[in-house]
Design a protein around this nucleic acid. Sequence first.
DNA 1: CGTCGGTAGCTGCAACCTACACCTACCGGC
DNA 2: GCCGGTAGGTGTAGGTTGCAGCTACCGACG
Lengths: 134, 134
Amino acid sequence: MRCRAGNESRPVSARREETGVGPPRNYLRPCVLLLLAEGTSHGYELLEQLGPFGFVRVDPGGLYRCLRAMDEEGLVSSTWQPSTAGPARRTYALTDEGREWLHLVVGSLGELARSLEMYRSRYQSLGAVPDTLR
Amino acid sequence: MRCRAGNESRPVSARREETGVGPPRNYLRPCVLLLLAEGTSHGYELLEQLGPFGFVRVDPGGLYRCLRAMDEEGLVSSTWQPSTAGPARRTYALTDEGREWLHLVVGSLGELARSLEMYRSRYQSLGAVPDTLR
DNA sequence: CGTCGGTAGCTGCAACCTACACCTACCGGC
DNA sequence: GCCGGTAGGTGTAGGTTGCAGCTACCGACG
């Protein structure tokens, strides 16, 4: 057992990027829907607004694919708008169905948050050795 | 635009399972490491203990693969133990390196939790229309 | 006029992770 | 012998993601 791959000599900091858990699966859709609930927008703008949601580097391709998929599913509606300066924009707005979806997804995000909270408390209990055992 | 796939007639409850965001990517490893930090265990037992961590149905294949990978990386150590009743068990214990990894991953889980908290507060602000606008 | 940078949207593809199915083997009991 | 429960393991298809690149529009500048 314990046939290490020879990476035990690397410092911990060099492995830091491997330890991340990353955003939840399908996290992009809820974030885009929330942003659209705060106001209509277009892809390029959403790209910049997605930063605070824990995405290290938002992938434009993924965002546009996500937007088109939600458009086809009726969660958002899109209208082309010619821009005064620059190429035309596809402006997205939340539909009623998208708002429903948003309300639903908040529930599952809450479950995830509860799971994370349980993790944190159990992790903290590890260090809390009762005095009687010391 | 808005070429819906014809699913708008289905009740919301029928689409509930599609709205989930699922656990974070690479969430299994942190959970297993936490369980092993609480005490040595073996795969079959971990399978049952993983329920509360938000996994709807834990995949045995994935768990065993995960355990073997962490064994090869030196995060856990394994020893075969003959069982009195039933087949032999492979008992896993956390190594010092695994404990380091656990400390690191808690940080990234905290970032995720903060992102979720921001999401929740922004979601709640949606309904809070200021009185001056009513 | 040409071309350069910034804005805007979109496609292809490889890598990765996961979920699902399936398999072997051990043991006790009927 | 055979069955069910325990325990560990493999193979693989599909979905998501990340990365790279591509078209096109516009204004500005030389």
